[in-house]
Amino acid sequence: MLKGESAAGTATIGVDVGTSSTKGVLVTAAGEVIASAVREHSVENPRIGHFEQDARIWWSEFVSIASELAAAATENSVSIAAVGVSGMGPCALLADDAGAPVRPAILYGVDSRAGDQIDELNGDLGEAAIMTVGATPLTSQAAGPKILWVAQNEPEAYARATRFLMPASYLALKLTGEYVLDHHSA
């Protein structure tokens, strides 16, 4: 058996989009790492308290990493059985019907632009009601206030948006054409 080859000769590609890089791994079912790859990227900081990324970078890096890992699979005579994606969050990526971003993604808690929207939502809905439904208080981590910020400050982008995505759901949409979003993010 070749190095990295499982009994079935299959492996999985896993790709994670992080704040400063996208990382990928080709791993057997037994957990042996055959190959890994990293692509570094930067965070845009257009104003104090605003941290964003162009989601198209996530896709470009995914394609590059997946190609590199697929080549490693071929070199090791291993077939790819599955692809898994994960990513930082919660981010607020608003996209149109085709899944194209309408503006850069607003990053998780490092982006603090939506303080007024947090106060507005807490006042309108009540902190207790928010906890009952969402099981977590609104903070700079929450995507909802960031989406409200876009609605109030960039109405043209908000009007074009029909989907809310995270890095993993953006990659899944690009890979499968299906819109998915995990429960916690939703």
Results as ranks from 00 to 15, higher is better:
2 L>I: 12
3 K>C: 10
5 E>P: 00
6 S>C: 12
6 S>D: 15
7 A>G: 13
8 A>E: 15
10 T>P: 07
12 T>E: 08
15 V>M: 05
16 D>M: 11
16 D>H: 10
18 G>R: 07
18 G>H: 04
19 T>E: 09
23 K>L: 09
23 K>N: 10
26 L>E: 04
26 L>A: 07
27 V>S: 14
29 A>R: 14
29 A>E: 15
30 A>Y: 11
32 E>W: 10
32 E>V: 13
34 I>Y: 06
35 A>I: 12
36 S>P: 00
37 A>K: 14
38 V>K: 06
39 R>I: 07
39 R>A: 14
42 S>P: 00
46 P>S: 06
47 R>I: 06
48 I>Y: 12
48 I>C: 03
51 F>M: 14
54 D>S: 12
58 W>Q: 07
59 W>V: 01
60 S>G: 15
65 I>T: 00
66 A>I: 03
71 A>C: 01
71 A>F: 01
72 A>M: 02
73 A>L: 13
74 T>R: 14
77 S>C: 11
78 V>Q: 06
80 I>S: 04
82 A>M: 08
85 V>G: 02
87 G>V: 09
90 P>G: 04
91 C>D: 10
96 D>T: 06
100 A>L: 12
101 P>E: 03
102 V>E: 07
103 R>S: 12
107 L>W: 07
108 Y>W: 07
110 V>Y: 02
111 D>A: 09
111 D>S: 13
112 S>D: 15
112 S>I: 14
113 R>I: 11
113 R>H: 10
115 G>H: 14
116 D>C: 08
118 I>A: 07
118 I>C: 11
121 L>S: 06
123 G>I: 00
126 G>H: 00
127 E>D: 11
127 E>C: 12
127 E>M: 08
128 A>R: 07
128 A>G: 01
132 T>N: 02
133 V>N: 01
135 A>I: 00
138 L>Y: 13
139 T>I: 13
139 T>D: 14
141 Q>S: 15
141 Q>V: 14
141 Q>T: 13
142 A>W: 02
143 A>L: 13
147 I>N: 03
148 L>W: 02
149 W>L: 02
150 V>T: 10
151 A>M: 13
154 E>G: 04
155 P>W: 02
155 P>A: 08
156 E>M: 08
157 A>K: 07
158 Y>C: 06
158 Y>E: 03
159 A>G: 05
159 A>L: 05
159 A>V: 05
162 T>M: 05
162 T>Q: 04
163 R>S: 03
169 S>L: 03
170 Y>E: 06
170 Y>L: 05
173 L>Y: 06
175 L>A: 05
175 L>S: 04
177 G>F: 05
177 G>W: 04
178 E>D: 02
178 E>C: 00
178 E>W: 00
179 Y>C: 03
184 H>N: 10
184 H>F: 10
186 A>E: 09
